[in-house]
Amino acid sequence: MKLTIDIEATDGAARTGTITSARGVLPTPLFMPVGTRASVKALDAADLEAMGIPLILANTYHLMLRPGADLVADLGGLHRFMDWGGHVLTDSGGYQIFSLEPKVTDEGATFRSTYDGSTHRLTPESAAQIQSKLGADIQMVLDVCPPLPSAPRVIKAAVDRTHAWGRRGRAAFLDGAGWRTDRGLDQAQFGIVQGGTDLTLRVESAQRTVETGFDGYAIGGLSVGEPREEMLPALAAALEHLPADQPRYLMGVGDPASIVEAVGLGVDLFDCVLPTRHARHGTVLTSQGRLYIKNLVHERDEGPLDPSCGCRVCARWSRAYLRHLHRLGEPTAARLLTIHNVAWLSDLVVGLRAAVREGRFDQARRAVLDVWG
C-alpha cells in the first residue's frame, strides 16, 4: 500500500502533515518508541495509549527468534498479540544482524542467535515474509548497514547490495508467493537509502531506491557514531532525491538536537531506544537538558522532573521519590522514568509540528539547540 503524506504546512524545508494508512492517520513529524520484543521496555499498551502514541517500532530480528513469526501469526499478528490498536513498524533485522558480524553473500546473511547460538539465514525474501507474518503496518526492506567509519569500498558495496536486496525484497513483497495474508495486503514496505557520509553515494542510493519504487522511504546508516556535522549533509543529500509526497523516515535517531535538525531538513518519522534506555539508567530528558536522578542534589527535591512537562509522572511524583526508587533498583523507577522520557520526547516533536504550522520553526529549532546542541 503506497503511503502518501498530505502536507498541512511548511516552514522552510520543515513540514507537518498526515500519513493515512489502512489502520488510520499518523500526524507528522512523529517519534516512535522502540518496542524491541513486542513491548516498549517497562511500558504496556495502555501506557502508550494514554500518552497518545500512534506508532511503535518492533524488532524483526528478535521476534523471528523469540517467540517466532509463525507463533505471532497464529495468535493474530502483533496487534492482537500485544493488544495494541495503534500502528506497528517492523525493521528488517538488518542492523542487529550486521552487528553480529554474519557471513554475508549476495544471497543473504547467515548468523547465530544471541539466545541459543542456533544458525539462521535471512534473505530479502524471507525478511519480507517474516514481517508479513508479524502483521506490521509498515515493514522495512532488508538492507546492509555498514559501520562508520568504513572504507569507501565497503560503503559502496553496501549501497550496491542494499539496492540489489531492495529489488528482491520489493518483488517478494508484491508477489507474496502464497504467504501473504489478508492482513498483509494492507501493509506498506519502505525502501532504505545507504551511503555512509559520502554525499555522492547518498544521492546514488536515493535515486536507485526510488527507481525500485516503494511505499515510503527511509534513510539508514546514520547516527552510528559519526558527528552530527557529517550526518546532516549526508541526510540532506538523500532527502533531495526522495519523493516529496511520500513519508521520509530517519532510522535510529532520537537525540533532540538531531531530531530538530532533521525536521528542519524535511524528515517525517523517527525512532530510537534513547528515551527508554536513558530511563533505565536514571537519565531524564528535560527542557533544561539531561537530569541524572541519582545525583545527591535531588535527595530532598520535592519538585517534578521537569516543571514544564505535562506528563502524569511530573504531575504526581517528586524528584526525591524517583531518586529513592532508582537508588534501590525498584522496577517502578524504570517504569515512571520511561513514561516521562517517552512522553517528553514525543511532546517535543508534537511541539515542532505546531512551530511549523505557526511559522516559527527556526525559533523552536534554536531553543532546542541552545539546550541540546
Results as ranks from 00 to 15, higher is better:
305 L>Q: 11
331 P>V: 08
240 E>P: 08
336 L>I: 00
246 Q>V: 11
300 R>W: 07
310 G>Q: 05
358 E>D: 15
351 G>L: 11
272 C>M: 01
320 A>Y: 00
284 V>R: 08
309 C>H: 10
350 V>W: 11
354 A>D: 15
315 A>C: 08
286 T>I: 11
276 T>R: 02
283 T>F: 01
315 A>T: 05
340 H>S: 01
334 A>R: 05
337 L>I: 10
250 L>V: 01
243 P>Q: 08
305 L>N: 05
275 P>W: 07
256 P>A: 11
288 Q>I: 01
332 T>N: 02
350 V>I: 08
245 D>V: 04
337 L>C: 06
242 L>C: 13
240 E>C: 01
279 A>T: 02
354 A>M: 12
236 A>L: 10
258 S>T: 15
272 C>E: 02
250 L>G: 05
334 A>H: 12
297 V>R: 15
352 L>H: 04
268 D>P: 07
343 A>L: 07
362 D>S: 14
283 T>I: 04
255 D>T: 13
297 V>I: 14
322 L>I: 00
353 R>N: 13
307 P>G: 12
345 L>E: 12
254 G>Q: 12
335 R>Q: 11
353 R>Q: 15
351 G>M: 10
313 V>K: 04
239 L>C: 13
351 G>I: 02
241 H>R: 07
329 G>C: 05
320 A>V: 02
280 R>G: 01
237 A>C: 09
267 V>R: 05
253 V>C: 14
274 L>A: 05
245 D>F: 12
277 R>Y: 08
270 F>W: 10
277 R>K: 13
303 G>R: 14
268 D>A: 01
265 L>D: 03
332 T>D: 06
247 P>H: 02
274 L>G: 00
349 V>W: 13
241 H>E: 12
318 S>V: 10
299 E>T: 01
235 L>S: 08
248 R>S: 01
246 Q>A: 14
273 V>W: 04
339 I>M: 13
290 R>Q: 11
297 V>Y: 01
302 E>H: 07
346 S>C: 00
315 A>L: 15
255 D>F: 10
238 A>L: 03
267 V>I: 15
337 L>E: 02
275 P>A: 02
236 A>S: 15
272 C>Y: 05
272 C>A: 09
321 Y>V: 00
301 D>E: 00
303 G>W: 04
254 G>M: 15
336 L>N: 10
304 P>I: 08
355 A>K: 09
357 R>E: 13
280 R>C: 00
301 D>I: 07
321 Y>H: 14
242 L>M: 06
266 G>A: 10
316 R>V: 07
352 L>W: 01
299 E>Y: 07
251 M>N: 06
247 P>E: 09
322 L>K: 03
259 I>T: 03
314 C>I: 13
237 A>I: 13
345 L>R: 10
254 G>H: 09
363 Q>Y: 05
321 Y>M: 13
353 R>G: 12
340 H>T: 08
313 V>I: 14
285 L>M: 15
345 L>Y: 11
268 D>E: 02
276 T>Y: 06
297 V>D: 13
275 P>Q: 07
360 R>P: 11
311 C>M: 08
286 T>Q: 09
262 A>W: 06
298 H>Q: 08
309 C>N: 12
294 K>N: 04
252 G>D: 03
262 A>Y: 03
361 F>Y: 14
315 A>Y: 04
342 V>Y: 06
243 P>T: 13
283 T>P: 09
322 L>G: 05
312 R>S: 11
